[in-house]
Design a binder for these strands. Structure first.
Lengths: 230, 230
DNA sequence: GATCCTTGTCACAATTGTGTCACATTATAG
DNA sequence: CTATAATGTGACACAATTGTGACAAGGATC
């Protein structure tokens, strides 16, 4: 994972300079853009591995821009971390809907910035690599976004897909509801723990039609585990 | 989930009670201190994995205390999260200089508190996992939350699991009932000593089906001990 | 705008775990 | 050997956790 590239979209140069200095020292390369137009140029020149996006940009809100990035094929898989000022946190949820991966509220420490960048990159990249994951006859194809058992398709919602993807790529290990929220939904979403149960239920139902719900096991007092065993 | 311990340094009992309640449910053990003196006592008794520190303490600012903790060898690596009231955020940067790892501004939701605690702990000690513990043919795998003897699964409740985990990671040593309550249940529960007996009984029963109950030995007048030897 | 799908939350049901008690059993002191 | 204290054990009420169906809000699609 050497030489990952980060695009900083931020109109205050004081801030983007500080950010640049920090991520430089962390071993990443980066470019700064002051508006969406510059950003487009940067992206064309070199596709970044991650985008740091200010909440407010000249002429457009960061969220709207994030949505736009999500629609373009080129950029739809690039993780986005939003930089919010104090008091804008109430709108966080809107951002997660737009596909934002994480938030940092200003002022933040260099440590925190680097930690979140690392966390997001770690979370995102393992998914990209092995696009096909098969355990027994249960097969998950990330690139075509399909789950199948013996070539017959298993229908499920996007969240269930991501959940199954995470579980299948991390089998034989128990994850608490909070951890699953962290890893599957994203770090700081404020969602009830119990919501995970409901999605587990939906996932089991989808797999159950094909007899594979037994792979998803409840560990009382701890969380859930994916395992072909027993 | 290896029973991490948190120290809460906060002079308002209403707040520290609420915090305690929350982190209890998140599976951590904790102690509360109302001032730096009490804090020192708590640290001496059991070194915490994380410190929650109020911005203002009787006689000293939280930041100054944080700096002091950073100077002591014993505490310099323990992550600190500061609790700030609204309006004190402008001083965040000073705190980061003092080596503070994160901030939470009051009022905060339990969910946010737990999320930040986990984030900081994960950031600081990412390698605290795995922990497969095997003695003879008895194997306890913390990450998959499984106990097995010769690959056949041993069923037990959550408390029995934690108890066995503690005993297996601290073999050859006698623990009194009160100590076990402290270490396995958490130091702030009010439970009868004799309850430990019942859980020992349940644990023995689970292991006994596989012939491993002899590992849990009663030391009359003292407590219990885990040991492969008779 | 009408329709469909997804999603988070809730309320209630089903299940499982927990702490305490009473009584049985065992060890130890005298 | 007996008295006494410590530990083992089964039962049980109730607490806590998890499963499940329903629902309303919000997006997406057309």
């Amino acid at each position: 994972m050497t030489n990952q590239h980060i695009l900083v979209v931020e109109d205050e140069t004081a801030i983007s300079d500080m950010i640049g200095f920090t991520i430089d020292r962390a071993g990443y390369t980066w470019r700064a853009a002051m508006d969406t137009k510059e950003a487009a140029t940067c992206i064309a020149e070199r596709l970044p591995d991650l985008i740091l996006l200010d909440w407010m940009l000249p002429g457009i809100s960061g969220i709207d821009y994030a949505k736009r990035l999500r629609k373009e094929e080129l950029t739809q898989d690039i993780p986005i971390i939003m930089l919010t000022a104090r008091g804008e946190e109430s709108d966080k949820l809107r951002g997660f809907d737009a596909g934002v991966d994480d938030y940092i509220s200003k002022p933040f420490s260099p440590k925190e910035l680097v930690a979140r960048i690392k966390a997001v990159l770690r979370r995102v990249s393992p998914f990209k690599e092995d696009s096909i994951c098969q355990i027994d006859e249960l097969r998950l194809d990330a690139s075509s976004h399909r789950v199948s058992v013996n070539d017959s398709c298993v229908e499920m919602g996007p969240t269930e897909f991501k959940l199954l993807q995470f579980l299948m790529t991390h089998p034989e290990r128990v994850y608490s509801r909070t951890q699953l929220l962290d890893y599957v939904w994203g770090s700081n979403v404020y969602i009830e723990d119990r919501t995970v149960d409901v999605h587990i239920r939906r996932l089991r139902k989808a797999l159950g039609d094909h007899g594979y719900d037994r792979f998803i096991q409840t560990v009382r007092g701890a969380g859930y585990r994916f395992s072909p065993q027993e």
